[in-house]
């Protein structure tokens, strides 16, 4: 019974959302809006769950003494930001905004910028013409990089056209194949979940 009820709820809502998509009736439209509201509310609760889980996992690690200083900083950040927002609000001159602009944004950008250094290192250490396929990939990468570099090199116009061709044909073909694959995979999985064939989302054993 514990497993039957969630399966019935899942199937009913799945079927209802599928049918309402094809209807312009007022009842169908307002039902859709109500369900979308609930969806957002449920998502907000998952955020709370995430926060509680983060605090619990970190407290356990702190008590064990693993990476203690880092975890404490993380927890202080997690607790202090909502407190600041609740006390002083999130207006332009608030402490919350100051922390966001002067601590979080620069730190996030710094971590993101580190990618450039890893790319540089990887291009030297790993990007080798070891096989025919790797050589083709290497050639395409060099053409794209050169064409995007705004350099006054001979045949720059032709190089740019060739780079666009790579983007519009071989690259897009691969992208489309991946997208179609993802679409078919999502459709199959959705049907399996709705029909109760796929039950791993219920947890436990089948």
């Amino acid at each position: 019974m514990n497993r039957q009820i969630p399966l019935v709820v899942c199937f009913s809502f799945g079927l209802m959302m599928f049918l309402q998509y094809f209807s312009t009736h007022t009842v169908a439209r307002s039902l859709n809006l109500a369900i979308l509201d609930y969806w957002q509310i449920i998502f907000a609760f998952t955020l709370i769950l995430g926060v509680v889980s983060y605090i619990k996992v970190n407290m356990t690690k702190i008590s064990r003494g693993i990476d203690r200083p880092y975890l404490i900083v993380g927890l202080i950040g997690m607790i202090s930001m909502p407190i600041m927002a609740l006390i002083w609000g999130i207006k332009a001159d608030s402490p919350f905004m100051w922390m966001f602009e002067n601590v979080q944004a620069p730190m996030a950008s710094t971590v993101f910028a580190l990618l450039a250094f890893f790319v540089a290192s990887a291009s030297f250490r790993g990007f080798r013409a070891r096989s025919t396929q790797a050589s083709i990939l290497l050639g395409a990468a060099l053409i794209i990089l050169l064409s995007r570099s705004n350099l006054p090199i001979p045949y720059a116009e032709n190089l740019s056209e060739f780079a666009d061709w790579i983007r519009n044909y071989p690259s897009m073909t691969a992208r489309r194949a991946i997208l179609i694959g993802i679409g078919l995979g999502s459709l199959t999985t959705s049907l399996r979940v709705l029909l109760g064939i796929e039950r791993t989302w219920l947890g436990g054993e089948n």
Binding site: A116, V119, A120, S123, F124, R125, G126, F127, R128, A129, R130, L138, A141, L142, L145, L146, R148, S149, N150, L151
Partner: peptide, 19 residues
């Protein structure tokens, strides 16, 4: 950005020469 692109090209070529 253009300079960084050139630097990456240089590193790829250099890495392949070594290889």
């Amino acid at each position: 950005q253009s300079a960084a692109h050139l630097y990456v090209i240089f590193l790829i070529v250099l890495g392949n020469i070594f290889y």
